[in-house]
C-alpha cells in the first residue's frame, strides 16, 4: 500500500493541473485500489467548484459530435474542460471497446481539455460511486467544466447522469427514440432536451411531441422548465451545423438559474447525500463480508436459504443484529 506521503505528492501534482497524475489517480479509482480512500480524502476538499454537465442519449444519437462542438465553444470562451465518457463493459469478458475518442481526438493536443474513457465495469460500489470519484479528481485538477457522457441505458447510467448539475438528454427524430427516452424516465431528469439530427424527416413532429410531453407536466413558478433545442451536429457543410450556440447558452442559462435560485445548493446537497449513501453501503458490505470471511458462515447462510430453512431478509437481520445494530438497540432499549 502506498503511504500517505506518496499519495500526498500525487495529489499535490494533481492540484497543480498535472494530467498524468489525474490519469493515474483515476486508474486507482477504476481499479478500486486500496489507496483510493486516502487519495479521495485528500482530494475532496479541493472539489465542488466545477460546473458538471451530463450528456446522455442512445448509441448513434450523436453525443460525441455534440460534445466535440461544445468543447470547441467552451474553449473559445477560455474555459478548461474535462470529459468522462462512459461506455458499457462486456458482461462476458469484462473487456470494453471505448470509441468515443474517435470524435474527440482533435482536442487531444489541447492542454485545456482532459478526456477520459471509462468502462462501466462491474464496480463493487457501483458505477455511480466511481464516477463521483472520477469527477472529483477532474474537478481537483482545476477544470471549469466537467462533461459526463453515458448511453443512458439502465438505471445505473441514469443515476450517473443524475450527478450532473445540468443534465442534457439527446434524442433524434424517427426510430421512436424520444418515446424510448420518455419511457426510460430520461425526460424526467432532463434540464435540456436536444433533438439532434434535426435536419432529418420527422424532426418537427418530434419537437412537437417533446414539447407536448413537457406541457402536461406542471412547473412551479420560478422552477426551471426544460428547454427543447434542435441541433444538427454533423452536416454536409459547416454552415449547416445548427443549434450549438443555443445549446451552449442553454447550458449556461441553466447554470445561472441554479446559482440564482439556490437550486445549486440543493443539487450539491443531493450529490453529497447520494455519495455518502453509496460509500456507506459499499463500505458496510465490505466490513461485513470481511468479518464473515474464513468463518464458513457465509456458505452456511447461503445453503440454509437454498434449503428453504432461511431467507435473505432474516439472514441480513441476524448478521446486522450481531455486528452493528446491537449498540443502537441498547441505546433505544
Amino acid at each position: 500500500m502506498k503511504n500517505e506521503k506518496i499519495i500526498n505528492e500525487m495529489v499535490q501534482k494533481l492540484l497543480s493541473g498535472d494530467r498524468r497524475m489525474a490519469a493515474r489517480l483515476i486508474t486507482l479509482v477504476e481499479d478500486e485500489a486500496e489507496e483510493n480512500h486516502e487519495a479521495m480524502k485528500q482530494i475532496y476538499p479541493h472539489t465542488g467548484k466545477a460546473a458538471i454537465v451530463g450528456i446522455t442519449g442512445s448509441a448513434g444519437s450523436g453525443k460525441s459530435c455534440l460534445i466535440d462542438h461544445l468543447i470547441r465553444k467552451f474553449r473559445q470562451q477560455g474555459k478548461t474542460i474535462g470529459v468522462v465518457a462512459v461506455d458499457p463493459s462486456s458482461p462476458f469478458s469484462g473487456g470494453a471497446f471505448l470509441g468515443d475518442r474517435i470524435r474527440l481526438q482533435s482536442h487531444s493536443s489541447d492542454d485545456g481539455v482532459y478526456i477520459r474513457s471509462m468502462a462501466s465495469r462491474g464496480y463493487l460500489g457501483g458505477l455511480t460511486r466511481s464516477t463521483h470519484d472520477v469527477i472529483r479528481i477532474i474537478e481537483a485538477m482545476g477544470r471549469d467544466i466537467v462533461i459526463v457522457e453515458t448511453l443512458g441505458a439502465g438505471q445505473d447510467e441514469i443515476d450517473v447522469i443524475h450527478i450532473a448539475q445540468t443534465c442534457v438528454v439527446v434524442t433524434t427524430p424517427g426510430m421512436g427514440d424520444e418515446i424510448q427516452a420518455l419511457k426510460a424516465g430520461l425526460m424526467e431528469i432532463a434540464d435540456i432536451i436536444v433533438l439532434n439530427k434535426a435536419d432529418l424527416d420527422g424532426a418537427n413532429t418530434c419537437i412537437k411531441n417533446l414539447q407536448a410531453s413537457l406541457s402536461i407536466t406542471s412547473f412551479e413558478e420560478g422552477e426551471w422548465v426544460p428547454q427543447v433545442i434542435p441541433t444538427v451536429a454533423v452536416a454536409s457543410k459547416p454552415e449547416d451545423i445548427r443549434g450549438i450556440d443555443e445549446l451552449v447558452s442553454g447550458i449556461l442559462e441553466h447554470q445561472k438559474y441554479l446559482h440564482i435560485s439556490n437550486a445549486l445548493e440543493r443539487v450539491k446537497f443531493e450529490r453529497v447525500e447520494q455519495e455518502l449513501g453509496l460509500i456507506f453501503k459499499d463500505e458496510l458490505q465490505k466490513i461485513i463480508f470481511k468479518g464473515l470471511k474464513g468463518t464458513g458462515k457465509k456458505k452456511k447462510y447461503i445453503k440454509s436459504i437454498l434449503e428453504g430453512k432461511n431467507d435473505p431478509y432474516s439472514v441480513v437481520e441476524e448478521i446486522l443484529g450481531s455486528y452493528l445494530i446491537t449498540d443502537g438497540e441498547r441505546r433505544n432499549g
Binding site: S89, S93, G94, A96, F97, I102, Q105
Partner: peptide, 19 residues
Amino acid sequence: LRNAGMEVIYVGLHQTPLQ
C-alpha cells in the same frame, strides 16, 4: 482484446504521434 477482457481505447484513423 476486448473479448480477452481488456479495455480498448480505439482512436481510429489518421492519428499524429502527438495525438
